[in-house]
Design a protein around this nucleic acid. Structure first.
Lengths: 339, 339
DNA sequence: CTGTTAGCGCGTTCAG
DNA sequence: CTGAACGCGCTAACAG
């Protein structure tokens, strides 16, 4: 059977209150401390955090809700958030919403039922109603990567990120640039798409043709299919911007299967590790993922301490453009596709 | 303030016991059901699982401990395990041990403190002492990927997996085959290394030369450095087997930087998605990751129901060899390295 | 089917 | 500094 204060009382003769104080940093006499430590070691005693949480109304755990687990972006977020929160004495419960709004809502209820003290979320969509159980209980929430109205958020400057990619390409002489991005149903994609449109107009004086930015499925397959679609246009782009890591990966796979004459220049998103697998080395818009995570953790800790302004806080971070192998970005005479 | 049974009692006039029964599937009269549902909706009531767990001694949650989060293998494991356990009514707490035995032990204590009913673990090392808190409380544990003495385990047939790779290579005419694997400090690497040695001897009649299987760091960098080391041997291998996904990735990156005359044939591990990024398409030893996860979940559910044999169970699954682009595996005349 | 009673393991008064 | 008593929100006996 698992040991409790009562067992320690039996072995030490002390009262439950004294034992409780020992485990909560109160003042306990030296000899009594030793008595408790001895008994606890013998019993393999460990504090029951469930009971503690019930009584103290603080579970000292926070929930991390991810739109999906299977992405470098998210695993980095988790790793950093968990690290920082652990320093502050909090445990972390990680939950995967698998790109499904319904299970995202379910997961939030699960966490609320587990009495988490706060939530960090990389949300699935734009709908914030899934956070209602948290709001109603005054459980603070910090969103990462997506701006959520009424919620503290840490995001990147999506428009500037895309603009930096477009600028690099126009500076290299490209005038026909395609975009691989998802539909306008999420904040991130809306911003990146708008950023693309604005940047192209600012640099070329013209809006990009519609067929150059048709929405794709946000996935590896979507990137793959999207790049092939762009290439087969009657006036194909000489360069393509990918608005997300999955799309970049898919586009790179498609690139890889093409003859080099057909390859448009590519600017992708994230994941430097994989960049080394691809030749020529791609140019990437790199997000400050560690910093996103740390800012979110810090913000949440503030809220847990009852600090910070009354209104929701929004933190916006800048991205970096990592320029890959130069040759990719010099405009070369191109062979027009036959069909 | 967050609502409790008392609030529902106040609104309905029913007793706590009746309300409890309602929330636990007991028989409650229709009118009373409606009363409770109405009150609960108005209060935005939600069961406090912490209190419930304290009383019932079943938290209905299980912990998943991973050696690292940042791997396709592990995220797939999590995804499938969580899916199956949710069907059975269990919530899942995911914890990342970050390849550190100490934080692995800490995480297990955290989970025990959270009163989890069971644990699934992809362990960091071979030492099983970190499971002591679970054992002591009769919390069932299922290990994945590593055979842990005294613990239910679900693993692949590592020796056969490597042997299948070696056989393919010898059938293609290779006689000098290198191995990229980690040190013998973990079960998995021990098995794969032993499998390699046995298979090479069985197929060529000779043990592989020592320098062909020097242990590498188990990482992308290790695979990268390892392949370069093998290539620069005075008698370099014409083919290389990579005993793990990270090593495969690193070796592929190194391959990618080499002139094609210097490229040995490669057989790697896992991750079919990335295989599409690499040309020529690599041959891969593919683990039945979904099945590993499902078998583990099923085994744990059995234990949670007090079923299954008294002794620890070991389930061993077979791997599949996915043969890549044929040309990689035909032995070609090779230019010997100068230095 | 419903209500009463007695805890689960712990933290927090308040006396001593 | 220590101990007794009470209650956190819920479940599990038992009566009724």
């Amino acid at each position: 059977m698992v040991a409790t204060y009562k067992d320690i009382r039996r072995l030490t003769g002390l009262s439950l209150a004294t034992i409780s104080k020992y485990y909560n940093g109160g003042n306990v006499l030296g000899p009594n401390r030793e008595l408790i430590e001895e008994a606890a070691a013998g019993l393999d005693y460990q504090v029951n955090n469930v009971a503690r949480g019930l009584r103290s109304r603080r579970s000292m755990t926070i929930g991390v809700v991810l739109d999906q687990l299977n992405s470098t972006f998210n695993t980095t977020i988790v790793s950093r958030v968990e690290e920082r929160l652990r320093e502050a004495g909090y445990g972390t419960i990680i939950c995967d919403a698998r790109q499904d709004a319904h299970s995202q809502a379910e997961v939030v209820r699960f966490l609320i039922g587990k009495m988490v003290d706060g939530i960090v979320v990389v949300p699935v969509g734009d709908d914030t109603s899934f956070l209602k159980p948290a709001r109603h209980r005054d459980v603070p929430v910090v969103a990462i990567d997506r701006l959520m109205p009424g919620t503290d958020s840490v995001v990147i400057d999506n428009r500037a990120a895309i603009a930096s990619a477009v600028q690099l390409l126009t500076d290299s002489g490209h005038t026909t640039i395609g975009l691989l991005a998802g539909p306008d149903t999420t904040y991130t994609m809306r911003e990146r798409r708008a950023g693309f449109r604005d940047a192209v107009r600012a640099r070329t004086g013209l809006l990009p043709r519609v067929e150059l930015l048709t929405p794709e499925e946000v996935s590896i397959e979507g990137g793959y299919a999207g790049l092939r679609r762009l290439i087969h246009l009657s006036a194909p782009p000489t360069a393509v911007v990918c608005a997300n890591y999955g799309l970049t990966l898919g586009a790179s796979i498609a690139q890889n299967e093409l003859g080099s004459d057909l390859r448009p220049a590519l600017v992708g998103f994230d994941n430097l590790e994989l960049a080394r697998l691809i030749r020529p080395r791609p140019t990437l818009v790199t997000q400050p993922i560690d910093k996103l995570a740390l800012e979110a953790a810090e913000l949440l800790l503030q809220r847990l301490n009852g600090e910070g302004p009354d209104e929701p806080v929004t933190i916006i971070l800048d991205t970096t453009l990592m320029v890959g192998h130069e040759s990719t970005y010099q405009l070369k005479p191109r062979v027009r596709m036959q069909r």
